[in-house]
Simulated assay, not measured.
Amino acid sequence: MEKIDDLAALIARHAPVDGAIETAIDGLGLLRSSAATEPVHTLYEPSCCIVAQGRKRAVVGGRAYQYDPSNYLVVGLDLPVIGAVIEASAQKPYLSVRLPLNREALAEMLMHDPTKSVRGEERASHAIAVEAATPHLIDAAARLLHLLDAPDDVLALAPLIEREILYRLLRGPQADMLRQIAYRTGRISRIQKAVAFIREHFTEEFAIDDLAAVADMSVSTFHAQFKEATHMSPLRFRAQIRLQEARRLMLVEGLGAAEAGFRVGYGSPSQFSREYGRLFSAPPRRDAVKRKALAFA
């Protein structure tokens, strides 16, 4: 427990107020919450998140993942996620650290890995998982945060510790996922190409055949692999991206529901309202009013 307590103390000191904090170390983020939160719809990028205190739930395509102290969440794709802190208090806030997964660094490390294999190409793989963090991984994360107190050392030492963290992850249960991220021919890497296409063209109409071609897979293989990785179909994935952006347009830019729906690609206001209500548990206008009220509460 000493190592995790050290990590919690470092996060608490460098994230003294609630919210997401970007640090002086490129890509390294901290999160603090002094209370449980309502579910938040967001997009998780490929990363590793280690929890030092409290508990959080991430829901992807209807499947829930809970992670708490000494566990880490690893995400291999850009995924629309419903996240909520479910255990936190002013006395014991939720505290976590997030580090992006560097594909180039993973690939370079695997070039010199005598234990490397191609197992990740042989079967489907989820692109999100929760695993138990080893003392070595927690220790490396704590040493990385210690560099925030020595800014002159960050440029030279942070990349070394980040590579150590990746090394620890490659020695863990999700090594196959990480190999697939590293190799451009890996299944998850190819699914990520389709995800990038969806994110860039989500307002447009396109066929599954188009996405399969981007991923360089047959249509049947692509559909099965995409659903295995993301827990949702490609069209449902696109719908979540559309609806999250529509919500942002209403809350941040002040657009009306009809205009927001049209802007993200819905030709039918009724279809937009139905799908929005299924995802956010309220029709667009009512949800926007509630969110704005909560923001100013």
Score class of each variant (00 low, 15 high):
1 M>E: 10
5 D>C: 11
8 A>L: 09
8 A>F: 13
12 A>F: 11
14 H>Q: 11
16 P>A: 07
16 P>M: 11
18 D>A: 09
18 D>W: 01
19 G>Y: 07
22 E>D: 12
27 G>S: 04
28 L>C: 08
32 R>A: 00
38 E>N: 08
42 T>K: 11
43 L>F: 08
47 S>I: 00
47 S>Y: 06
49 C>H: 02
54 G>K: 02
59 V>N: 11
67 Y>L: 13
70 S>V: 07
81 V>K: 02
82 I>E: 13
83 G>Q: 14
85 V>S: 11
85 V>G: 10
95 L>P: 00
96 S>A: 12
100 P>E: 03
101 L>E: 03
103 R>C: 03
104 E>Y: 06
109 M>A: 12
113 D>S: 12
114 P>I: 12
117 S>T: 14
119 R>N: 10
121 E>F: 14
123 R>N: 11
125 S>H: 10
129 A>T: 07
129 A>P: 10
131 E>L: 15
138 I>N: 07
139 D>F: 08
139 D>R: 11
142 A>R: 04
144 L>S: 03
147 L>D: 01
149 D>A: 15
152 D>N: 15
152 D>C: 10
153 D>Y: 08
153 D>A: 15
158 A>K: 08
159 P>M: 10
160 L>N: 10
167 Y>I: 05
168 R>I: 09
171 R>A: 15
171 R>D: 15
173 P>Y: 05
174 Q>V: 07
175 A>M: 04
176 D>S: 13
179 R>W: 12
184 R>A: 15
184 R>I: 04
186 G>Y: 01
191 I>D: 00
194 A>S: 11
195 V>Y: 01
200 E>F: 06
208 I>V: 14
210 D>I: 04
210 D>G: 02
215 A>E: 05
216 D>V: 01
222 F>S: 08
224 A>E: 12
228 E>G: 05
229 A>E: 07
231 H>I: 05
231 H>N: 13
235 L>M: 11
239 A>W: 01
244 Q>V: 03
247 R>F: 09
247 R>A: 14
248 R>T: 14
248 R>N: 05
251 L>T: 13
252 V>Y: 01
253 E>Y: 13
263 R>G: 11
263 R>I: 12
264 V>T: 10
264 V>H: 02
271 Q>M: 14
271 Q>I: 11
271 Q>F: 00
272 F>G: 01
273 S>N: 06
277 G>V: 05
282 A>N: 03
283 P>E: 12
285 R>L: 09
287 D>C: 07
288 A>F: 06
293 A>L: 15
297 A>K: 09
